[in-house]
Computed example of a mutant assay.
Amino acid sequence: MRRPENPFKRALHAGRQQIGLWCSIPSALTAEAVAASGFDWLLIDGEHAPSDVPDMMAQLQAMARGTAHPVVRVPWNDPVIIKRVLDVGADTILVPMVQSAEEARAAVAATRYPPHGIRGFASNVRATAFGRMSDYFTRHEEEMCVLVQVETVEALEKVEEIAAVDGVDGVFIGPGDLSASMGLLNQTRHPDVVAAVEDGMRRILAAGNRPGILANDPVLARRYMAAGAVFTAVGIDVMLLVRAADDLARQFRE
C-alpha cells in the first residue's frame, strides 16, 4: 500500500482556487454529510470547536467517504498536539496564532521527522494504515501540507518573513482575531479590516506564498478571491444550520 498524494497541497502550489467549508460541529455524521457536497476542502476545527483528538479522528474517518480534502486546525502551535493529529491521519494542518517566522518554523518542525524536525516516530498508527504504507516515511514531507494562521496586527507586520519560511504551504489570515487586534472586535466587514486583509494577501503573494481566508459573506468571499486568496472558506456548518432553522421557523410563525 502506497501513501496517497495530497491533492490539496498540489492545487495550492499550482495556484488553483480551493473552496472550503468550516466544520465547527464536532460530529462525524455532519462531516460525512458535507464531505460530498462539492467543496475542495473541509476545515475540522480543533481550536474553537469542542473537539479532542478522538473527535477529529472520527471526522477524518467520516470524510474519507467524500470528495473534500480534510484540513485540521489544531488548537495551538504545540508539537504534542500536532504529533497526535498527524498520527491519526491528518495530512494538512492549520496552525493558529502564528506571530513570527520563528513560530512558523516551529510549526513546520513539528510535522517533520529528524533531522529536519522533531516529530516523534510511531509506525503502527492510522496515518500509516497501521504500518501498511511502505513509503509513508520516505514521502511524508512531500505530502505534508502546513498552513499557518496570522491574525494580529503584529503578525501581519511580519507576514513576509512568515511566508518565506521553508515548509509553509499557505498563510491564512484570520479576520476575526485581526478585527479584535485592530480594536474593531467582530467587525470583520469594516473597511479598515478588509483593507488590512487585502494588503496582507498582496504581501503574501509577493513573498511567493499562497493566502487563505474565511468569509461567510459571499460578496466579501468573492472580493478576497479576486484579491488573491487561493484557499477560501465560504461558510461555516453551524451557521448554515442556524440560519436554515431560523428561516424555517420564521416562515411558520408568520
Score class of each variant (00 low, 15 high):
V80K: 01
A196K: 11
G20T: 02
R112H: 15
G46L: 05
I213D: 08
V108K: 10
V171W: 00
L185T: 14
A155F: 04
A155R: 03
A122L: 07
P50V: 02
D177Y: 05
V34C: 07
R253Q: 12
D52M: 05
P70Q: 03
V71K: 05
G120F: 03
I118N: 11
R112M: 13
A107R: 10
D217H: 06
T67R: 14
V88N: 09
F137D: 06
V193R: 15
I81P: 01
L248E: 14
W41G: 07
A249N: 06
E102M: 00
F39P: 08
G235W: 07
R202N: 07
H190K: 09
S37Q: 13
V194G: 11
H48F: 04
I93Y: 03
L60S: 01
G20R: 01
L248I: 13
A109C: 03
P211H: 08
A11Q: 13
A28R: 03
V168Q: 07
V171S: 04
Y136E: 10
A33Q: 12
I236L: 11
I173Q: 05
D52G: 10
D192S: 15
G38F: 12
P218I: 08
A227F: 11
A163V: 04
P70G: 02
V165W: 08
E143P: 01
R65Q: 02
S179E: 03
W41C: 14
V108R: 13
A58F: 02
M1I: 12
A35H: 09
P70M: 01
V219F: 05
E151I: 13
G131H: 08
R253G: 00
R3L: 15
M201H: 01
V146C: 14
R126S: 00
L21Y: 10
I236W: 06
W76T: 08
C23Y: 00
V74M: 09
P7A: 12
A35M: 13
F130D: 00
A180P: 00
E32P: 07
E32T: 08
G20H: 05
D169S: 08
W22R: 07
L147N: 01
D247W: 04
D246E: 14
R3S: 13
S181E: 12
R2K: 13
R126E: 00
V71A: 00
L42A: 06
T30R: 12
A221T: 01
V194P: 11
L241A: 14
V219M: 03
E32Y: 06
G212R: 10
R3C: 09
L205S: 10
G183V: 08
R10A: 14
P75G: 05
I25D: 09
P218N: 09
V153R: 15
L147T: 01
Y113D: 11
F8K: 07
A35W: 11
V34K: 08
V238W: 02
L86M: 14
I93D: 04
M144F: 04
E161D: 15
L248Q: 14
